[in-house]
């Protein structure tokens, strides 16, 4: 009767960051390689694009939400506004905010993945 050898059990604690850095090649800037310089330019523009998209999304959503307390503070008329018998603040912060956040996240992911695809095409052409 054959028993399969039981693999030794190990506990994964964390990545071997130190060990991996010793062996990691420095892949980007090979000094004799002109395309690597070009790639470095591409990478920088990729990072700038991703950062810009992130800033736009967070500015629109977080900025929009940050206005809400001020609106309620300086326009107390809003306190009496009701939607289906429920106060406006409850509708905005209790319900409406969640689909808006989800939509913003979805648009960000969609745009960012497109940005990455364009980057990949650029790199593969070069």
């Amino acid at each position: 009767m054959n028993r399969k050898p039981v693999p030794e059990r190990v506990v994964v604690m964390s990545p071997r960051t130190r060990a991996s850095r010793r062996t990691r090649p420095a892949p980007v800037s090979r000094p004799d390689d002109r395309t690597s310089e070009l790639r470095e330019v591409y990478v920088r523009s990729l990072i700038r694009g991703q950062l810009r998209r992130g800033l736009i999304v967070s500015a629109v959503v977080a900025g929009g939400l940050a206005v809400v307390p001020l609106l309620f503070a300086f326009a107390p008329a809003l306190w009496t506004v009701t939607v289906f018998g429920v106060g406006l603040v409850w509708v905005v912060l209790g319900v409406a905010v969640y689909p808006v956040v989800l939509l913003a996240g979805w648009m960000y992911v969609w745009r960012t993945e497109r940005g990455e695809r364009e980057f990949v095409e650029l790199v593969e052409q070069s």
């Binding site: 994964v12 604690m13 960051t17 892949p27 980057f119 990949v120």
Partner: peptide, 23 residues
Amino acid sequence: TRLHVPEGLGLASTEQHPRTRDE
């Protein structure tokens, strides 16, 4: 480059291995 470039392009080494401890 490793943080921002999509994996699988060979531009950056993205693989890291876990530190393991024998039980």
